[in-house]
Amino acid sequence: MKIVKIESKMGIHARPASQIIAFAQKQACEIFLIKEGRQYNAKSIMNLLSMGVRFGEEVGIVAEGPNSDIAIEEMARLLLSIE
C-alpha cells in the first residue's frame, strides 16, 4: 500500500474530490483509499467525500486489476497536488 500525507490546508474537499473521482472512474482497475483502517472506493463520490480527509492526515492507496501500479502512482501524484 502506498501512503501519502495530505498537505492541502483544506484536505480533500469537493473540488479535488471531483478530480480524484474523474481519474479513478477512468481506470480499469479498482482503486481504494484507506484512512484509519477503513476502505473507501475512489470511484464513489459519496465514499470519497465521506472520508473527511483533513490537512496532515495520511491516506493509503491500494489498487487491484489492470495497470494498478500506474494507477497507484498517478493517484498519489494527484493527492499530493491538491491545493
Partner: peptide, 10 residues
Amino acid sequence: QIFPTNHAIG
C-alpha cells in the same frame, strides 16, 4: 457524513 468543517452533508 457531515464534512469535518460542517459545510457539506451526505
